[in-house]
Write a protein that binds this DNA or RNA. Sequence first.
DNA 1: AGCGTTCGGTTGCATCGGTAACGATCAGGT
DNA 2: ACCTGATCGTTACCGATGCAACCGAACGCT
Lengths: 146, 146
Amino acid sequence: MMSEFDLEAFLPYRLARASDAISAGFATIYRERYNMTRPEWRTLALLGAFGHLTATEISRRSAMHKTKVSRAVQSLEERGWLTRSADDGDRRVEHLELTAGGWAIHAELTENARAYEGDLRQRLGADAIAALLSGLDAIEADRAHD
Amino acid sequence: MMSEFDLEAFLPYRLARASDAISAGFATIYRERYNMTRPEWRTLALLGAFGHLTATEISRRSAMHKTKVSRAVQSLEERGWLTRSADDGDRRVEHLELTAGGWAIHAELTENARAYEGDLRQRLGADAIAALLSGLDAIEADRAHD
DNA sequence: AGCGTTCGGTTGCATCGGTAACGATCAGGT
DNA sequence: ACCTGATCGTTACCGATGCAACCGAACGCT
C-alpha cells in the first residue's frame, strides 16, 4: 500500500532544497577563494553592515548558535580580519570590528554577492523573485511576533 | 567606513534563515518523538511515497549526499523499519522497502506533517504560501534546466 | 557586603556530514 | 575472455556543529 503524502510538495522540504540550491553557488565563492565557512562569511558581512557588534548581537541577528559565532570570530581574528576591544563598564563584552584587511575581503565578497544576486534575478525572473520575497516577508513576520 | 551591502536582504541568507525556521518545528517532532534525523525522515518519506527505491534514487530525488542516504538506510534498517532486497540482474543494486513497522511510523509522521503544514498555512496566510510556492517553482525550474 | 541568578563568551565531548578512497559489480570495446 | 572505465554502495578520516558544562563578570535582592 502506498501513501498519498507527497514529500515533494511538503513546504519545509521544498524550502530546504531551494535554500541549499541557492546557497551552494555563493558558498563556492567564499569557500574556494577565501577558505571561509558560512558562519565566517555571515559574521564578516554583519560586521561590514553594522560597523561594530558584539558576539551576542551577531548571534541574535543571524540566528546562529553562539558557539558558531565564537568559533567564526576566533577564525577571523586569527587571519587578522577583525579585532576585539573591551567594553567600558562591562568587561564580559567584546566589541568586534573589521580590520583594514577584513574590509578588503568584505569589499570583494560583497561585490561577488551583488553579482550573484543579479545573476539570480536574471535567471529566475523579477516576478519570481518578488513572489519569493513576499513569502519570505511573511515567514519573518510570523517568526517575529510569536 | 561602512558598506552599503545589506546581508538581511541577500537572498541566499534570507532563504536559509526562513528554511531553518520552517524546518525547526517539524524537526522537533521526528527528533523527539522518534529519535530520527532529517536524512532518516526524508528517506522514510520517499519510500512511503514511491513504495520502493534504491539508495541512488533516494539520493537523486532528495539531493542528499549518498553517504547520508547510506547511513540513514542503515539506521532505519537497524530499527526494523525497512528491508533491502537484491536486484535480479545487477547485484550492486539494493531495493529498499518499508516494513509494516516502517509504514506505521510513516503514517504517524505524515499525519503530523499534514497538520504542521495546515498550521503553517493558517499562520502565514494563503496568499503568502502561494507566493512562496511560485517562487520555489521558479527555483526548481531553474535548477532543472541548467 | 553577601548570596544566588543571569549573562557574555569559550571549550570538551559526542555526533553529523562531506571528501576521497575503496570493494564489488557491470558495461563496452577489442 | 580480457581490460578499462563507470556505477552502486560502504567506510575511514577529518572538519563542522550542537549541547552542556564552565569561567568570569554583572545584576538583584536582602
